[in-house]
């Protein structure tokens, strides 16, 4: 226990010493504050605590859509871009060197010559690295939680799902960085490896998502798409193209072993439960709301099915297996090697 606290404390000191940690935290706070500055009045939406106004027929004070929009802004824009992209990328940049530095000649000896098992040392050091993201996202989410409560009157604790989910997404990539880091002892390779894995995983998920839209979403919305002429025709019912369906099926099978970095953050939207949004705005995208239009129910239904096409197991289970495998490889290298 004493040793575990020592290692975690050391990880914390390491983060504190990183400039990027503070920069990321600073930007994080700005983004959260910007979010908090968005409000609604009788005409529409206001920005920067009422300084700028935008007229909008739907998004007005007191309208349930406005509250739902506010939540959607968090789950569809801020989560998707800030937390899932920039925050994770910054975290990778600043944590990739943790293991290569740790196992450097002249430094690892001190830790290994202590009565703490190698596996324990490895795992504690790994979890220490996750602190980077966990702390950032926690601070961020607290501000968002307060802003949501203040603007919509709903004190929604489910937004805190962002903390474990974003940390988990980061941990998937960090595991790869750690594995390559302990293997090559090089920060550069660790970073390259993690970003490469991220790219491959994203590509896989995009492909799956795109193929799903072609095979299911488009026909379910009542749109027939002629692939030869590129023409779109709206119909009452559209047959699904069996080739497209089986394409999607294959793609999904191929993507299954990959870490679901994107799908995990998308799933957050389902974990964060909001009464208005879930009833009123099911299947409504952010762009539709901004332009002040609502989709027809059939399309909304298809969108909702699109959003919910993956099971919890598919998104988190397969990712967790990926992480367990990569982490075991890393731990194996770490425990077996001579320093």
């Amino acid at each position: 226990m004493r040793a575990a606290m020592t290692i975690l404390w050391d990880s914390f000191r390491l983060l504190q010493a990183k400039k990027l940690f503070w920069i990321a935290l600073g930007i994080s706070m700005l983004v959260a504050l910007f979010y908090a500055s968005i409000g609604f009045n009788e005409q529409g939406m206001t920005l920067f605590f009422g300084w700028k106004e935008f007229e909008n027929p739907l998004l007005r004070q007191g309208q349930p859509e406005a509250a739902a929009f506010y939540v959607l802004l968090f789950t569809d824009v801020i989560l998707k871009f800030w937390l899932a992209w920039i925050a994770v990328a910054l975290a990778l940049l600043s944590t990739a060197s943790i293991f290569p530095d740790f196992i450097a000649e002249g430094s690892i000896g001190i830790s290994l010559s202590k009565p703490v098992g190698r596996l324990r040392l490895f795992l504690l050091k790994y979890f220490g690295g996750l602190l980077f993201v966990a702390l950032q996202v926690t601070v961020f989410t607290v501000i968002v939680f307060l802003a949501l409560g203040w603007r919509t009157g709903e004190w929604n604790l489910t937004v805190f799902w962002a903390v474990p989910v974003v940390t988990f997404v980061f941990s998937l990539l960090y595991a790869v960085a750690v594995w390559i880091g302990v293997w090559t002892k090089s920060t550069l390779f660790a970073l390259l490896g993690a970003f490469l894995m991220w790219g491959v995983a994203l590509l896989g998920q995009w492909t799956e998502s795109f193929l799903y839209q072609a095979a299911h979403l488009v026909p379910e919305s009542g749109i027939e798409f002629d692939y030869r002429t590129g023409e779109q025709v709206e119909k009452d019912s559209v047959e699904k193209n069996s080739a497209a369906v089986s394409f999607h099926k294959t793609a999904k099978a191929v993507v299954t072993p990959l870490p679901k970095t994107r799908d995990c953050t998308t799933y957050l939207k389902r974990l964060i439960k909001m009464k208005e949004r879930d009833s009123l705005l099911a299947g409504v995208t952010f762009d539709m709301l901004l332009s002040g239009s609502l989709p027809d129910p059939r399309m909304a239904g298809a969108m909702k099915r699109n959003d919910e096409r993956h099971s919890f197991w598919y998104v988190f289970g397969t990712s967790a297996i990926f992480e367990a495998v990569v982490l075991s490889l890393a731990a194996w290298v770490f425990c077996r090697r001579d320093y």
Binding site: D10, R13, L14, Q16, A17, E105, G106, S107, I110
Partner: peptide, 10 residues
């Protein structure tokens, strides 16, 4: 250790 290297941030 030989050529002991301690964390600069400590």
């Amino acid at each position: 250790p030989e050529h002991a290297r301690f964390a600069e941030y400590l």
